[in-house]
């Protein structure tokens, strides 16, 4: 994994420049990690339940809704309420695309998936407070609508 290669190189560079500082960095890392752990555990509990109630196949089935505006609403709800890594989402969306699901609906789904996180609220709230978290997620929802509509226009799926 490239990521851990980078972490290791930086850690070694740091260690050979200043051992004390590096130890302090590791202490900070550990303290922060354990500090936020309860919020992460709560998030994982929510994720595990949501994944049971809304498995990937079910979400994908719902996105295939005939009516485009209903499809949009379902896409945004599903995108906000689930957590899926990119390497799962995009291949699935590619399949849906081939089945004729509009780009607009897929864009609403992927953009809310990226920007709006109900399941990550426990973690977000812990850092930024509930107010900021809610306002930021609300803004993400609005941005997702705009992105989806523009996508629909560009791909001529909707007309003004």
């Amino acid at each position: 994994m490239i990521f851990y290669g980078v972490v290791l190189v930086l850690l070694l560079l740091s260690f050979f420049s200043d051992r004390k500082k590096t130890l302090k960095a590791l202490k900070i890392a550990w303290k922060r990690f354990t500090g936020i752990l309860p919020a992460f555990v709560l998030m994982l509990v929510l994720v595990s339940i949501s994944l049971y109630l809304l498995p990937h196949e079910l979400v994908m089935k719902y996105l295939g809704e005939e009516d485009i505006s209903r499809g949009m609403v379902i896409a945004m709800l599903a995108g906000s309420l689930t957590l899926m890594p990119g390497f799962i989402v995009f291949p699935l969306c590619g399949i849906l695309r081939e089945q004729g699901v509009p780009y607009m609906v897929l864009s609403a789904f992927t953009t809310t998936l990226m920007m709006v996180g109900v399941l990550t609220l426990p973690v977000e709230k812990q850092y930024f407070g509930i107010k900021t978290a809610l306002v930021r997620n609300g803004a993400g929802l609005i941005i997702a609508v705009i992105v989806a509509v523009v996508t629909g226009l560009v791909f001529s799926e909707v007309v003004l």
């Binding site: 972490v7 500082k21 590096t22 890392a29 990690f33």
Partner: peptide, 22 residues
Amino acid sequence: FTLSMLKILPGAFILIGLFQVW
């Protein structure tokens, strides 16, 4: 999900620690 998150979290927090001191 815990396993896939644990693959990234430790590295991310180490980078945050290095950021803090450097």
